[in-house]
């Protein structure tokens, strides 16, 4: 869109006036076309929910039954929000196997993630050798206190959560 701009000030006044009206009308017409024919892109959130992509990185979940307490996730974490502690199995105890065949030689006593600190970078899930630490698709976990953001994955109330996420 290039015009030769008239230099005569009288002509220029009317040219500017014409140009202002014309460009505004063009813009208004583009906006007006959105009244019909363009599908709405927003969704009504609590009723309608978007299906998240498979790789979406939301709240972390640890399937404690498959964890071998290797602390690799805690080492990879750039913000140090994973707390693991474990102790040696007593003599003669049965050595369990994880779902992909690794033997669990340590007894996991604590596995807690401070979700308030987590930066959802996904580095911990990529180093996990048994793929027990994964990003779930839960994104609604607002809490009243900051302490409640610390999730203990050995607590008994995790079972319902586990049933939803781990598809055996």
């Amino acid at each position: 869109m290039s015009y030769t701009v008239p230099h005569n000030s009288f002509k220029k006044y009317f040219y500017d006036l014409f140009n202002a009206v014309k460009t505004t009308v063009v813009g208004m017409w583009i906006t007006f076309r959105y009244v019909w024919g363009v599908k709405s892109v927003s969704i009504e959130y609590p009723e309608v929910r978007e299906v998240l992509p498979e790789r979406a990185r939301m709240r972390l979940f640890n399937d404690a039954q498959n964890c071998i307490s290797c602390t690799q996730c805690a080492m990879a974490c750039p913000v140090d929000c994973i707390y693991i502690s474990s102790e040696k199995l007593p003599e003669g105890a049965e050595i369990k196997k994880t779902s992909n065949g690794q033997s669990i030689r340590l007894h996991l006593t604590q596995f807690t993630i401070d979700t308030a600190l987590c930066c959802y970078c996904g580095l911990c899930t990529t180093v996990c050798p048994t793929e027990c630490l994964t990003h779930s698709h839960d994104y609604e976990f607002a809490q009243y206190t900051i302490d409640a953001m610390k999730y203990d994955y050995l607590a008994p109330d995790v079972k319902a959560w586990r049933d939803r996420i781990v598809k055996a």
């Binding site: 602390t71 080492m75 140090d80 707390y83 693991i84 502690s85 302490d147 610390k150």
Partner: peptide, 21 residues
Amino acid sequence: NMADREFIVRQEMIKKAQEAQ
């Protein structure tokens, strides 16, 4: 609070484990 204190103790344990590793 006590829960935080516990976490800090755990964190130091992790650091020791990392150094050993």
